[in-house]
Amino acid sequence: MLHSINLLRTLSCYAIAIFHIRAFVHSHSDTVRLTFSASPGFHLFLAISGFILVYITRPDDTPLNFMMKRTVRIVPIYWTATTLALLLALARPWLFHEADTSLPSIISSYLFLPHYDLGGDIQPILFVGWTLGYIMLFYLLFSLSLFVPERVQVPAAILMTICVIAGARFLPAGAYREFYGDPILLEFAMGCIMGLSLRQKAVQDFVKATPMWPIGLVGIVGFAIAMNVTLPSWGRIAVYAVSSSLVVFACAGQDLFRKPLQNEFLAMGGKISYGIFLIHPLLMTAFGVTLFAITGNDWVATILMFATVLPLSSVLAYLSFRYFETPTNTWLRKSLRLSKLPPKAAREVKAEMGPTVV
């Protein structure tokens, strides 16, 4: 079990939620100013996704089977959360005042296609869904990589990611060019590289003989630099990409080839992290508007937002995972006859690991 990676997934989603609450507070208050101005959560999210796809990909899987398994995991709750956001935007436009509720925007939101909202940002109706547009792209690239021989599947996925960035430059100016040409895609490629490196025996021997925490610490220092120093776009992405990959490498190496964390609470945190990611924008918007309206004090409203949105998002994410996501995923996999075999990478690692070290 990837307990350290699950902890990282949980922390990344909480970091994203905290960053969004901060942005909401700043847009509704002239007196409250929270010092942090960036979040590593998005960058970790993409790097983790790259590693996880390398870890779970079975080279003997079919492209369609692989794509369908990933799709049935993320689509049901995303479509549900998007529908709730759409209903709120239609009934109370001031809750999602930048959401574009036109038909093309609605279709694009459900299909993970990039488009501009009313504020000029590339965001769907449920604004956090922009990240999932990249995730669906990664799923597609990994599905396509299954057409080539096993030894080059992951390099092929990485190469296709780079080609997407380069190819987007030839598109007409607009949402597609801006979205798919964003160098943030390199963070996913870095996560893939970390996953690929951990398949190599020399790297595995290095991990078994070397404490992972200093590597993770270097990544954290990189986050601190990126969050507090003004850098050009490519420079900022480069620092985040390297920092995220180092943290992911350290956590994955600890889980796979050293003494993993033994904590079921962390495992559950990883399972509900996707729910936290999708649910917190709905609660933040509804609670935030209400709290700022009734308290009359911006600092009280801010404190209450953090005290209510984060724990309630966690509770609702747990309920969603147990009573909606898991049953839905199980039913869809059974109905579509999708494979239940564990990922080949997991089977191979389990066979090769042998005794773990501290």
Rank of each mutant, 00 (worst) to 15 (best):
F277G: 01
M227L: 14
L44A: 10
E187D: 11
V32W: 10
G222Y: 06
L64D: 00
G216H: 00
M68V: 02
F287E: 13
Q153L: 02
D30H: 07
G296F: 00
L44C: 09
L111P: 05
T210E: 07
F112K: 08
P327H: 06
G296P: 05
V75C: 02
S39E: 13
S102P: 09
E264I: 05
L304G: 00
L137D: 12
Q204D: 11
V154S: 08
A99G: 06
Q262M: 02
M194F: 14
I135N: 02
E348W: 03
D30A: 11
W299M: 11
F24I: 07
A17T: 04
F324V: 14
Y14G: 01
M353N: 02
G50F: 00
S37H: 13
S314E: 09
A168W: 10
F306V: 10
C192W: 07
V203D: 10
S314G: 07
G120H: 12
F24W: 05
I74M: 03
Y318Q: 11
A209S: 14
S12L: 04
L86Y: 08
F179Y: 15
P172Y: 07
W299D: 07
N297V: 10
R58K: 10
M68R: 02
I77L: 15
D298A: 13
S145M: 11
R322M: 11
T82A: 05
I294P: 05
G216E: 05
L90Q: 11
S335P: 05
H280I: 01
I225D: 01
K201E: 11
G167A: 06
K69N: 03
K334S: 11
L103R: 00
L282G: 09
L186Q: 10
F112I: 14
S197T: 11
I276L: 14
L310P: 04
Y139H: 08
P59K: 00
D182T: 11
V315D: 00
F112S: 07
F306T: 13
W234M: 14
F179R: 06
W331P: 08
L261F: 05
R322H: 12
A202I: 03
K350P: 08
M160Y: 03
P343T: 01
D60T: 06
T230M: 13
P232H: 06
A202Y: 01
L291K: 01
Y240A: 03
V148N: 07
K201Q: 15
L336H: 03
